[in-house]
């Protein structure tokens, strides 16, 4: 079984990215490609659904950090939802939860973007 598979789907104007497995130094390139591809395709509203994510090493956070500023500058964002306790704990230990919006469910994540849109 591969360390990581990443699938993505479109919910309205939000691109939901579902990594399954481990994001570590070995698989991080794959994770980065899936985010970059979505951004290149013009989708600026990304939601990472972490329900299948077992672990994220710092390299994975580095990828998000490297992309988030530019994405926000274009009016988009990278948000996360449905993180398991391990991943949530990592985010809290590092303080990542203060930099990135974390929602409890995918539905809330998608809704959080709609709340941003005026009207």
């Amino acid at each position: 079984m591969p360390d990581l598979t990443v699938e993505s789907r479109q919910v309205g104007d939000v691109t939901v990215i579902c990594p399954e497995g481990f994001i570590n130094a070995h698989t991080v390139r794959q994770f980065e490609q899936s985010l970059s591809r979505a951004l290149e395709d013009g989708n600026q509203k990304l939601l990472i659904n972490g329900s299948g994510l077992a672990y994220i090493a710092s390299a994975g956070l580095g990828v998000i950090m490297g992309l988030i500023e530019e994405t926000r500058a274009k009016g988009g964002d990278i948000r996360l939802a449905e993180l398991n306790d391990t991943v949530r704990n990592i985010f809290e230990v590092l303080g990542f939860n203060h930099l990135c919006k974390i929602l409890s469910s995918e539905k809330e994540g998608v809704a959080s973007y709609q709340a941003d849109t005026p009207g």
Binding site: L61, G62, I64, I68
Partner: peptide, 17 residues
Amino acid sequence: REVLLTNAMGHVLTTRA
């Protein structure tokens, strides 16, 4: 190089490197 850079950014939580 890539592994080094993304890991450092992820730990420090910086957007520039």
